[in-house]
Design a protein around this nucleic acid. Structure first.
Lengths: 178, 178
DNA sequence: TAATATAAGTCTCCTTAGGGAACTAAATCA
DNA sequence: TGATTTAGTTCCCTAAGGAGACTTATATTA
């Protein structure tokens, strides 16, 4: 069986050296991966658990778990012998997807769930309040908003990407964000 | 033509009242939506621009843009008459996806791009430094990490969801996160 | 004036990702 | 002894998505 996660997508205007968002999405931007990872944060660790909670087909779950292990987002850990059985645990690479899922949850609760009908609430152990996460800059501690963010071609940008970024910035006549 | 975005997925163990993350993913969790929105943050506004930058097929782009307009993530604005032509602009609902894309970009740069080969760099206008966003709690200003977050069933949680959350928490023997 | 280009799609054909259900294997339970 | 649990594999079918030709109305160029 081929366990690689193949894709024909071009996915990106920065062809040779793709944008980090499209790299992330190429890895976990399918229908299920982020939900599997979400369940892992909830404490689910075994094939059966993921399968029952998500309602995903076993075939696709097998493929996704293999891919996520290969991507070092999960690691397999033996929890039983004869027959050998493994649990799937998040690595630090996987655990660092927490901010992505948290900001997604925040947006979902704010824009998709009728007020007062949230299915999950997160409490912050530090203060006991309902969590309303906000993004701040590690350097100056000030909030990070689209208007305060300026995108520049990085060291790995292709000539093509640099041109396109410039073009976009000059066309829109304002700072480009992201 | 049917412009609705249909899906057969069960997608969720909280069947009747799904988790905000799965709600978000059901809306923008396909191969393209988040990349279209990313391009909008870069300043792209027109059908042609999205199509050229992304390499997406026109058919799917049409479907996605219609869906995103219906979801009020984009709004159409007339920029020319005879024939009528529209631009696609982010609404505030769409603009508030910024933290999601920013944390994605952060993770992609950290875990998928070789150090020093980033294709995009973000500068913070407030301090001029490269942005390293971090999540803090709006109430106590302390960092929000998986270990400091406790998930509770919200007011809209189904009985089924409450049971599952309890079960997960008691099984894993530790605080559940997310 | 004729030909080409632009912008924003629509239509047709084809490939492939993913769902459903049945089957497998090894051990344990009743 | 037969059912159950856990973790898959295999087969068949449907539907999402890609490629590319066609459309419509205007503007530009040779």
């Amino acid at each position: 069986m081929d366990t690689r996660y193949s894709s024909r997508m071009t996915f990106d205007f920065q062809r040779e050296a793709p944008c980090p968002i499209s790299q992330l999405l190429e890895l976990v931007g399918d229908r299920w991966s982020l939900l599997i990872i979400r369940d892992a944060f909830y404490g689910v660790r075994r094939f059966d658990g993921f399968q029952k909670h998500l309602g995903i087909s076993k075939k696709v779950l097998t493929m996704r778990l293999n891919m996520l292990v290969q991507a070092e987002i999960f690691k397999k850990e033996l929890y039983q012998q004869q027959p050998d059985r493994y649990e799937y645990r998040l690595t630090s690479k996987g655990r660092e997807l927490f901010p992505v899922l948290l900001t997604m949850m925040r947006w979902g609760n704010r824009w998709l769930t009728p007020a007062g009908q949230e299915t999950v609430q997160l409490l912050h152990a530090s203060c006991g309040e309902k969590i309303e996460p906000k993004l701040v800059c590690s350097h100056c501690e000030q909030p990070v908003t689209p208007a305060r963010v300026q995108a520049m071609p990085g060291p790995g940008a292709s000539r093509e990407a640099v041109q396109l970024l410039r073009q976009i910035v000059s066309k829109s006549g304002k700072k480009s964000v992201l």
